[in-house]
């Protein structure tokens, strides 16, 4: 299995709080890797590191032949052309039409003719099922369509890596399933590496080739779906079986808590 991204001993802090505690794992090339975890597990923080929005306290992120944790802006800008990101709320620029949103990275980074870009925009929008919506503004689109347009924009420069931050967040189950299917279709058609951050188990079972699970800042699991199902790690079982955390205090602790000492 060829490695696309390797994360070594990643430690990061928000102020004094340690969010990621020595996380190490690798992401295989040309597959869909799901980064799974509950709220506060550090998965969103990890994603922000992978797309270069945050720098870790210590540790390495090896990607595209370099350590992006220590790259300067200029070097990292080269890497940025090879990654596309779908943000949770799609993050389309509201002042631009769908077509102009998709064209944004092309206009910034290439010398392509306007007419070539128009063909490319139509190709990308067709790919995500949004043909004919070129001149719509994001505010005129539904949640699912916004995310599709966000994917088209993320794919504008034919990236090698495509990141998805909670693709099903805020969508009804039918739209979310449609989006999962789109991810599957794209994954089959393009030789890209997909990294999906989510906590939606149905979606994980549908799209994942490889799963990394984060729990309270630790990577507790990295492996295939079957290995995940077979795991007997208590936290993973809780996640899979949707069990809540049982908090048990001793009577003394309970008294201490309510007495407010």
């Amino acid at each position: 299995m060829e490695t696309a991204i390797e994360i070594k001993n990643l430690v990061t802090h928000y102020g004094d709080v340690k969010v990621l505690k020595d996380v190490s794992f690798s992401i295989p090339k040309g597959k869909t890797t799901v980064i799974l975890g509950g709220s506060g597990s550090g998965k969103s923080t990890l994603l922000k590191h992978l797309i270069g929005l945050l720098k870790p306290t210590t540790g390495q992120i090896l990607m595209n032949g370099g350590d992006i944790a220590v790259m300067n802006e200029q070097e990292f800008n080269e890497v940025r052309k090879r990654i596309g990101v779908l943000f949770q709320g799609a993050a389309l620029l509201n002042s631009l039409t769908v077509a102009d949103n998709v064209a944004l990275p092309m206009r910034e980074h290439t010398q392509l003719e306007e007419s070539t870009m128009q063909v490319m925009i139509r190709m990308k929008l067709d790919l995500v099922g949004l043909s004919g919506f070129e001149n719509y503004y994001p505010s005129q689109l539904s949640g699912g369509m916004k995310k599709r347009a966000g994917i088209a924009r993320a794919m504008a420069l034919d990236p090698a890596f495509l990141f998805f931050d909670e693709p099903s967040a805020g969508l009804d189950p039918i739209t979310a399933a449609g989006l999962d299917e789109l991810i599957l279709k794209l994954r089959q058609a393009f030789k890209m590496t997909f990294i999906v951050v989510t906590h939606e188990m149905p979606s994980v079972f549908k799209i994942a080739d490889y799963v990394v699970m984060l729990d309270r800042g630790d990577a507790v699991f990295a492996g295939t779906l079957d290995e995940l199902r077979a795991s007997d790690n208590e936290r993973i079982r809780m996640f899979l079986e949707r069990r809540s955390e049982k908090e048990v205090y001793s009577p003394e602790d309970y008294f201490r808590i309510i007495a407010g000492d």
Partner: peptide, 11 residues
Amino acid sequence: AEEIDALVTMG
């Protein structure tokens, strides 16, 4: 709305 982050990741 993460649009600033989106701009940054698009370089």
